[in-house]
């Protein structure tokens, strides 16, 4: 892809005590591309994502979004710049209905306005209509009224995707979105991710940074792959090249990744 990258992570280091969870990690994401980050448990994948989202600050290094340095911005400001995020453990509002969870994401984009003080938000169609559409997209339309806390694990995972979709992000960060799902649901969610990556009429294709352990999912979806091991980038490049890389195969895919 031509043009400047949408996301640039430059030599980011983050320590926890003596442990370098991220050690001079760099990567770049083009607009509309899907970039997977793989690596064994404890490699520092979630730490990297948290720094891009803004809930963790890097010790050193810079992060740029659309050319703008966001290293010191709050998560909220980054969201305003078009960043959406799914958590490794689903983060939803358990006491709000699935619909309201998504409607809140729409509301965050729209702001308060006078309606914010006058209208019953639960009946606000300008919020609910896009929310229903996002729920339908992830296959949760029939559970719109269910409190998020009462949803199944997989449904809650997909609800988080709907929340992210409703934000209409430029950059979407996902931390193991299919983990813990059964084979059918997992396959359906991979298809869903492919659709999200493709964009829609009312929503341009976001760039996606995907952390995933499921290699079938990774190589089905990713344009590029970065392999993280013990906080360092072991390999990075087009998916096919990384898959063929001998070092990657021994360090990660070949051994630790052998199916049981």
């Amino acid at each position: 892809m031509t043009g400047p990258p949408l996301l640039e992570v430059v030599e980011v280091t983050r320590r926890f005590g003596g442990l370098a969870a991220n050690d001079a990690v760099s990567l770049a994401l083009d607009p509309g591309s899907l970039h997977a980050v793989i690596g064994p448990n404890g490699a520092g994948k979630s730490t990297l994502l948290a720094q891009i989202a803004g809930t963790l600050r890097p010790d050193t290094g810079r992060i740029r979004l659309g050319g703008r340095d966001i290293t010191r911005l709050s998560p909220r400001r980054r969201a305003r710049l078009g960043l959406a995020r799914g958590f490794q453990i689903s983060s939803v509002l358990p006491r709000f209905s699935a619909l309201e969870n998504v409607a809140l994401a729409v509301q965050a984009r729209r702001g308060l306005g006078l309606a914010g003080l006058l209208v019953d938000a639960a009946r606000d169609r300008s919020l609910n209509r896009p929310a229903v559409a996002a729920l339908a997209e992830v296959g949760l339309a029939d559970q719109a009224a269910v409190p998020a806390g009462a949803l199944s694990h997989g449904a809650r995972r997909r609800l988080e995707l709907a929340i992210c979709l409703a934000q209409t992000p430029r950059l979407l960060l996902l931390d193991e979105p299919v983990a813990g799902m059964g084979p059918d649901e997992s396959r359906a969610t991979v298809d869903l991710l492919a659709r999200i990556a493709g964009g829609a009429d009312d929503r341009p294709a976001p760039a996606i940074l995907l952390i995933e352990h499921d290699m079938d999912a990774v190589f089905a979806l990713a344009d590029r792959v970065t392999v993280l091991v013990q906080g360092r980038v072991l390999a990075s490049g087009p998916a096919a090249e990384v898959r063929a890389d001998a070092a990657v195969r021994t360090a990660y895919l070949g051994t630790a990744a052998a199916p049981p």
């Binding site: 998560p75 994401a105 308060l112």
Partner: peptide, 27 residues
Amino acid sequence: HLLRTRFGRILRGARDNDTRMQAIGFA
């Protein structure tokens, strides 16, 4: 009334999960 508006829903949402609320862009 206000607790049911957008203004109030932000207060209630932040009580439930402030991290999520900030992640979608709420102050």
